[in-house]
């Protein structure tokens, strides 16, 4: 029964990492930019929840979404749009710069010691389902993760802006020649990725209430690793990769106990190396990619 419980927890954590992977993948699709500052959006949402902890949860969560989405759009407008014609390396370095800048701001404003978020703390309570003790946050994470992923899929597959985003992700120049507005599509990708980041802020802080300036860094790194493992060229492979990394992290964490848990990240990354050696194109990519580096 313990294994089943671990599986349920793993699926819940996997769905959170899948959301992060989609958030990163959407921006990558239209800009070919891996946004390393994505985790700092999640941290911004977490601090918003902490600052507004005395207000009703609904108000705090709505404010969290407003702050994260606004910050995401602001970064696009102020930091990334002026560099759009720069080399990919310059863009990548810019995301690191933004990431460190935001972390430093969080450090200055909120200090290095963690702040505990209590919004929706009631979701930590467990419910008994056929002998399984499942926390409400696990169920909520699963439900929200699934709904958001389905919503994103519908947005991309059934709407005009979604079609424009898919076209831009395939061949941005041709899409622009056809009249697809670059600024609108890119801003929309940042908007949706902001919504996903805010959702992760809420779900993650319920599971791990301590908010520190570098909260988003490991989340982003693990999700990015998942994106690479899944395959960066398509959104659904990246999503599956994100899910797989969260799933593996949770399951391995369940098997390790006590002091051995400090080796969990090393184990996960070791597993990633094995996967990439066996399938360099990604776990879910169709054709293995052969790239000459030397």
């Amino acid at each position: 029964m313990s294994t089943l419980q671990a599986l349920v927890d793993a699926v819940a954590l996997g769905s959170i990492y899948a959301l992060v992977a989609v958030g990163i993948g959407l921006v990558f699709g239209v800009l070919r930019l891996i946004n390393f500052a994505y985790g700092e959006l999640i941290t911004a949402g977490a601090y918003t929840l902490w600052v507004l902890r005395s207000l009703p949860a609904v108000v705090a969560i709505l404010a969290c979404f407003a702050v994260v989405v606004s910050l995401s759009l602001l970064l696009e407008r102020v930091a990334f749009r002026p560099l759009r014609k720069a080399t990919p390396a310059t863009m990548l370095i810019a995301t690191f710069a933004v990431s460190y800048l935001l972390q430093s701001i969080y450090l200055l404003v909120f200090g290095s010691l963690g702040n505990s978020v209590s919004t929706l703390a009631g979701l930590q309570q467990a419910v008994d389902l056929g002998g399984l003790r499942i926390r409400w946050i696990t169920i909520v994470s699963l439900a929200c993760g699934s709904l958001l992923l389905i919503g994103t899929a519908i947005l991309l597959g059934r709407t005009s802006i979604g079609l424009h985003m898919r076209a831009a992700a395939t061949d941005f120049q041709t899409a622009r020649v056809l009249g697809v507005r670059a600024n609108r599509v890119i801003a929309f990708a940042f908007l949706v990725s902001g919504v996903l980041a805010a959702s992760v802020s809420v779900l993650f802080t319920v599971q791990n209430s301590l908010v520190t300036p570098d909260l988003g860094v490991p989340i982003t790194i693990f999700a990015l690793v998942g994106v690479v493992v899944g395959g960066l060229d398509r959104l659904w492979t990246a999503t599956l990769g994100g899910f797989a990394i969260g799933f593996a992290y949770s399951l391995l964490g369940d098997k390790l106990s006590g002091e051995a848990r400090v080796y969990l990240p090393s184990l996960v990354f070791g597993l990633v190396i094995v996967v990439l050696l066996l399938r360099p194109g990604g776990l879910f990519a169709g054709q293995p990619r052969s790239v000459e580096r030397v």
Binding site: L163, H164, R166, A167, T170, T174, L178, G179
Partner: peptide, 20 residues
């Protein structure tokens, strides 16, 4: 040509309306 190979013909045509 630069048609979008991964999209359907109908979706390619819908994209043509982006500039209307």
């Amino acid at each position: 040509r630069h048609i979008f190979a991964g999209l359907t013909v109908e979706e390619n045509l819908r994209l043509g309306r982006a500039a209307r």
